[in-house]
């Protein structure tokens, strides 16, 4: 508990300072609204808020994340069977991970339309590469002796995978999930700049900013941050429950 107290204290202090500064120095609301005003904007229109959340987080982000992680994982399982393919594809995938993949958003819109499927496609493309690279590394991380042990027991390929490689790659899978949970939300919000039905967190931020409703923009940023930190925290918690100590 005391471990969390310090950062919490820091956060509260920043909020208080923020409120005091905005009120005290009478900062223009266009620049920076006070936390209380942001909170008021947050609870002002719950139905719109929920619709945006549903569109961007529960559809674009989570579905895209699921597809991206699962296909990266599956591709890694395939490539793991051939050292030759592994040596060829892994460097390419690591390079691809460093490229600005969000840029395919306009293409995704042409292929899948304005609604959430095109955003989910961008998210899937973004999260595929970290998932692939980390899974391959995880499957390869098995020690030589452990591998010998399974071979000496004449374990089948499936047993090798289930009983040795997959458990050994768990830390790598969680690392990929953490990276991807952040990437996915970014991708979903960014993709909405290339056209969207009139709903979604990215869309809301863009239009409210254009209308100078800055308190609503901040409220939405807060929600997005909550989604991001929330999914990160859930993954970290799951990791602590599942991961083993070595």
């Amino acid at each position: 508990m005391t471990r969390n107290a310090l950062p919490l204290l820091f956060g509260v202090a920043v909020l208080l300072l923020w409120q005091a500064a905005v009120v005290g120095f009478d900062i223009p609301r266009i620049l920076l609204p006070a936390p209380t005003e942001i909170f008021a904007a947050l609870i002002a229109d719950p139905s719109t808020l929920f619709a945006d959340l549903n569109q961007t987080f529960f559809h674009s982000t989570l579905i895209g994340l699921g597809i991206g992680c699962a296909s990266g994982f599956g591709a890694a399982l395939l490539v793991d069977r051939s050292p030759f393919l592994r040596r060829g594809f892994v460097p390419l995938a690591s390079l691809a991970g460093a490229l600005p993949i969000v840029g395919i958003a306009p293409i995704a819109v042409m292929w899948f339309g304005f609604d959430w499927p095109s955003k989910a496609a961008v998210v899937a493309a973004l999260t595929f590469f970290p998932s692939f690279v980390h899974t391959v590394a995880g499957l390869e991380s098995v020690g030589a002796l452990e591998r010998d042990l399974m071979v000496s027991l004449a374990a089948s390929r499936g047993q090798m995978l289930r009983k040795l490689q997959l458990p050994a790659s768990l830390p790598f899978l969680f690392a990929a999930l953490k990276v991807n949970s952040v990437l996915a939300l970014t991708g979903a919000v960014v993709a909405e700049f290339f056209g969207t039905p009139t709903v979604g967190m990215g869309f809301r931020i863009a239009t409210e900013a254009a209308r100078m409703n800055i308190d609503r923009v901040w409220a939405m940023i807060f929600v997005v941050a909550l989604c991001g930190s929330g999914s990160y925290a859930i993954i970290a918690l799951a990791e602590r429950r599942l991961a083993y100590r070595s």
Partner: peptide, 8 residues
């Protein structure tokens, strides 16, 4: 040569 126990 080493125990090679699975840590999980």
């Amino acid at each position: 040569q080493a125990p090679a126990l699975l840590p999980w």
